[in-house]
């Protein structure tokens, strides 16, 4: 029989271990009575990764992404777009962080073809999707538009490329399908447009101003009963708003 057959000795040994560790866990637990605990300086603030320069992209990649986001959410009569909001910077910072390697996802094989409801089932992590996808996009543009890179194309041509990617008509070299790359680009651009400015996008709260989102305010009692009136206060981000700085 196998080595793991249940013997008397094994049973007693494992039971003792369980008691030992069980006991340790119980001693480590906290009993709270009276009021909940409170300690000075307790906070769990987000850790922004701003800094200078690029953290993931090389400059040519950054310029291409910047050109793409400018077509996905263009500046128009409603206000500035994703380029002005710094969405390419946002994507760069996100790729450098835990998102870039899908740290929070289960990423072990097998990778079967799932239904759309099952979410991404690919082995491609965002690092690969962007790096390979951008290289394939460059090759696709140069092959299709007489050696021109994406950033050198007219706006209408750029839109045509992006539409071909979205519909899966553009065939990309390598492991990353054009459709998968486009889906991630579109999602990350939207995120960068509406995430808190501390993550690098939504600069000057452009996205929030566009849709009238008030930001990290949390008390609306004075306004609850004022129906069909615009909310008068400007948006405020996690680290404040320009009026928090002394002027002059």
């Amino acid at each position: 029989m196998s080595n793991y057959a249940l013997t008397r000795r094994y049973f007693l040994g494992s039971t003792t271990l369980t008691f030992l560790f069980g006991g340790v866990t119980a001693a480590g637990a906290r009993t709270i009575s009276g009021q909940p605990p409170w300690t000075a300086f307790t906070a769990n603030p987000p850790t922004p990764e701003l800094g200078n320069g690029l953290l993931f992209f090389i400059p040519s990649e950054f310029n291409t992404v910047d050109a793409i986001v400018a077509r996905l959410i263009p500046a128009d009569e409603l206000g500035p777009g994703a380029r002005e909001a710094g969405c390419a910077t946002f994507i760069d910072r996100q790729l450098a962080g835990s998102f870039g390697t899908f740290q929070r996802f289960y990423m072990q094989p097998p990778f079967a073809n799932g239904t759309p409801q099952q979410g991404p089932q690919s082995a491609n992590i965002p690092h690969v999707i962007y790096r390979t996808g951008l290289a394939a996009l460059d090759a696709y543009c140069r092959a299709t538009y007489a050696g021109k890179a994406f950033i050198a194309l007219e706006a209408a041509q750029q839109d045509a490329v992006l539409q071909a990617m979205e519909k899966g008509q553009a065939k990309f070299e390598g492991a990353v399908p054009a459709q998968q790359f486009f889906a991630m680009l579109l999602q990350n651009t939207r995120e960068g447009f509406f995430a808190d400015p501390l993550y690098g996008g939504n600069r000057d709260m452009i996205g929030w101003k566009l849709v009238g989102f008030p930001g990290t305010r949390y008390d609306y009692r004075d306004h609850v009963s004022k129906h069909n009136q615009p909310y008068p206060l400007p948006p405020v981000s996690i680290f404040g708003r320009p009026d928090w700085q002394v002027k002059g």
């Binding site: 305010r217 206060l233 404040g240 708003r241 002394v246």
Partner: peptide
């Protein structure tokens, strides 16, 4: 300084 303080207080 009062204006900046007021904005912070409000938010």
């Amino acid at each position: 300084h009062m204006l900046a303080g007021k904005a912070i207080y409000k938010d």
